[in-house]
């Protein structure tokens, strides 16, 4: 957008071009992204007694509840995987996705105070949310690893190494892209019509049941299996479990499918987001 002739360095105009994603500007503000991440971490556990222990408590207790409800009472099989590990893996990954999605989905509404007073690339905030949740995920994966190692050493669980374990970062990255993409689409929608935040609040619960978190994909069959396979989260969760537990197969096609869908959603999301950010202060 540099008008070289007259030496103008910036032009403020009513609309951006669809293809100007302003990623360069975002890069210039990278320090701000990390400062927001730091802020989220140092501020969130202030004035709590247990502090960062809350990071561990939440997945562990949810796992125990799931174990009692779904394994002990409902007797839903976990496809040959130790139920505790099955749920812990599912919950940890699902939490990451849903935190990315839900927390970025109210970016405009929650940050209207800052956005209304000063300009910086608006995407800085959703991206910082995804990154700080990534750190949280890292900590929770340590919990998972500790339980996993305990089970191997003391309960005789067998573990065989698969090269697909190297795909873990890719799976998490795709999940982050999908969560961010959906989140910013919703953040653009909720700005004017808050109806979408109500939709999201129960939609995210329904989405969990449409993702193989509390049951293995192999437990479903026929039409249902097809629909659940369409969910881009399904191959991510299934592949994650394969990489760790070695049961089933690694679905490369599904992975590619999830990656494509996620990138498209993110792309659409950024375009949408950049459209809305220009005038959202008038309607928020």
């Amino acid at each position: 957008m540099i008008n070289k002739e007259a030496g103008w360095t910036e032009i403020i105009s009513p609309v951006n071009s669809y293809w100007n994603m302003k990623l360069g500007e975002l890069f210039r503000y990278r320090d701000l992204i990390f400062l927001f991440v730091k802020r989220d971490f140092s501020a969130v556990y202030k004035q709590t007694i247990l502090g960062p222990l809350w990071l561990f408590i939440q997945p562990i207790f949810t796992t125990l509840i799931f174990f009692f409800v779904f394994t002990k009472i409902a007797k839903i099989p976990t496809g040959g995987i130790d139920p505790i590990l099955f749920y812990l893996a599912g919950i940890t990954l699902w939490n990451y996705f849903s935190d990315c999605f839900v927390k970025t989905s109210n970016t405009f509404v929650a940050n209207a105070g800052i956005y209304g007073k000063v300009y910086f690339p608006r995407l800085v905030i959703p991206i910082s949310i995804v990154i700080s949740n990534l750190i949280k995920l890292g900590v929770q994966l340590i919990v998972f690893a500790v339980v996993f190692i305990y089970k191997i050493n003391f309960e005789g669980l067998s573990f065989s190494f698969h090269s697909t374990l190297f795909f873990l970062p890719v799976l998490i990255l795709i999940m982050a892209i999908l969560g961010l993409g959906l989140g910013i689409v919703f953040s653009a929608l909720t700005t004017k019509y808050r109806d979408f935040s109500f939709l999201l609040a129960f939609g995210i619960q329904l989405l969990m049941y449409a993702t193989p978190i509390i049951y293995p994909l192999s437990y479903t069959s026929g039409q249902l299996n097809k629909w659940i396979s369409l969910n881009p989260l399904t191959p991510l969760i299934e592949n994650f479990k394969f990489a760790l537990f070695g049961i089933g197969h690694f679905d490369y096609v599904g992975l590619l499918y999830a990656a494509c869908i996620s990138v498209i959603i993110l792309f659409v999301g950024i375009i949408f987001f950049n459209r809305v950010e220009k005038n959202f202060m008038d309607t928020v």
């Binding site: 032009i11 009513p14 501020a43 004035q47 800052i114 007073k117 000063v118 220009k278 202060m281």
Partner: peptide, 29 residues
């Protein structure tokens, strides 16, 4: 913070606006 409905504004150089002091200050930090 918001954009015009019609028209353009051309700027040379870095622009900073102070509509408020302490934007983004976090009380716990």
């Amino acid at each position: 913070v918001t954009s015009p409905t019609k028209g353009n504004i051309k700027i040379k150089g870095r622009i900073a606006s102070l509509l408020e002091v302490g934007t983004g200050f976090h009380p716990d930090l």
